[in-house]
């Protein structure tokens, strides 16, 4: 049941990403990429191989539909690899939770910070790979920041909707 639920969640996210967010809603300076939230919300205890493979698959699907040629794949695999690290940073001082730890157990503020950090990193990596150069770093950073704030808002809304059901 849980599996079906998460597959449904993944499909919803991908659908929103490919047919709404990629195209007509904010096709401009702000590019919200919400699909990475699925990786970020995976239980922290899940195997790294599983996370990496899933990230590869999701990134590839988004790439195919956006014509990004591997940009999304590279970025989301990278995030999947960094995820345990990011999670550990925000778990600092709450080590007693190490067994069966879950995002919910981070507390509201920390989990929000964790998701935002993940989104921001993903946008930054994505835009850097897309540019294939780091020469105009400031615009890149600003663009990542604005876009990740945007994505963050949508991820929050999505989560609210998810919990209500």
């Amino acid at each position: 049941m849980n599996l079906i639920k998460s597959i449904f969640g993944l499909l919803t996210l991908l659908f929103l990403q490919i047919f709404i967010f990629n195209n007509f809603l904010f096709d401009g300076y702000l590019n919200p990429y919400i699909y990475i939230a699925f990786i970020l919300f995976l239980p922290p205890r899940s195997s790294v191989f599983y996370t990496l493979s899933l990230a590869f698959l999701i990134g590839a699907i988004v790439d195919v539909f956006e014509g990004g040629y591997g940009v999304h794949t590279a970025a989301s695999v990278f995030i999947a690899f960094l995820k345990p690290l990011i999670f550990r940073i925000f778990r600092a001082g709450k080590n007693e939770l190490s067994e069966s730890s879950d995002i919910k157990q981070l507390g509201l503020l920390r989990s929000l910070a964790y998701v935002f950090k993940g989104l921001f990193l993903h946008h930054f990596i994505l835009f850097s790979i897309e540019n294939f150069a780091l020469d105009n770093l400031l615009p890149l950073l600003m663009r990542s920041l604005y876009s990740s704030i945007f994505s963050f808002t949508f991820v929050l809304l999505y989560q609210l909707w998810n919990y209500r059901r």
Binding site: F56, D63, Y69, G70, T73, A74, F78
Partner: peptide, 12 residues
């Protein structure tokens, strides 16, 4: 991780 990333970059 490196394998997956190199596939992605080969694609790019």
């Amino acid at each position: 991780f490196l394998l997956l990333e190199s596939i992605a970059f080969a694609w790019i």
